[in-house]
């Protein structure tokens, strides 16, 4: 059962993973420090398959890819937010961390709710409250990167030009 970990609006990359921990690129190690200052209980409590749910402008500020890596390393399977800051959005897609944009789901899911997510269809179900939400569709070329498992994996098999072809 996936549990929702709820965060507020404008959660910045320092709050996801403080700069002083960015000396490693090991995502498990980063995951152990994820949200350590805003939610000290997160890293010890999060279970594989849990879901991070946030408000508007999630992941604003720094370009650090350590932020989505830390979330994935912590065991969470995806982030649901009302909206994403632009570099975080690109970074999550590029490293293959699923993200779902839905202001309705963000508002309708509370801390600790049980949630199931159909990543392929973008359907979010709140099992605690019996509600369901459809995430905003992603552009085709973003889906191509996501389907490959991230930008690096995409480029191993394809040329950049195929993205926008």
């Amino acid at each position: 059962m996936a549990r929702a970990w709820k965060f507020e609006d404008n959660l910045n990359t320092d709050e996801i993973i403080p700069a002083r921990f960015n000396i490693t690129i090991d995502e498990k190690e980063l995951g152990g420090k994820a949200f350590c200052e805003v939610r000290p209980d997160y890293a010890a409590g999060v279970q594989p398959g849990d879901v991070v749910v946030a408000g508007w402008n999630f992941g604003c500020a720094s370009s650090r890819e350590h932020a989505p890596l830390a979330i994935r390393g912590s065991g969470a399977i995806c982030v649901i937010a009302a909206s994403f800051a632009r570099i975080f959005f690109r970074n999550a897609i590029n490293i293959g961390l699923p993200i779902l944009e839905s202001p309705e789901a963000s508002a309708g899911i509370a801390e600790g709710d049980e949630v199931s997510v159909d990543l392929g269809a973008g359907i979010i179900t709140n099992l605690t409250r019996g509600t369901q939400y459809q995430a905003r569709p992603l552009p085709d070329f973003v889906l191509r990167i996501a389907a490959a498992g991230g930008l690096v994996k995409f480029l191993r098999e394809h040329d950049m030009e195929e993205l926008t072809a």
């Binding site: 370009s63 570099i87 690109r90 970074n91 590029n94 991230g150 930008l151 690096v152 040329d159 950049m160």
Partner: peptide
């Protein structure tokens, strides 16, 4: 600003979307 994977990708392709 972009993340590091895109920088590594641009080293190889010379391009970005």
């Amino acid at each position: 600003g972009l993340g590091s994977s895109e920088i590594g990708a641009a080293w190889v392709t010379g391009k970005t979307w």
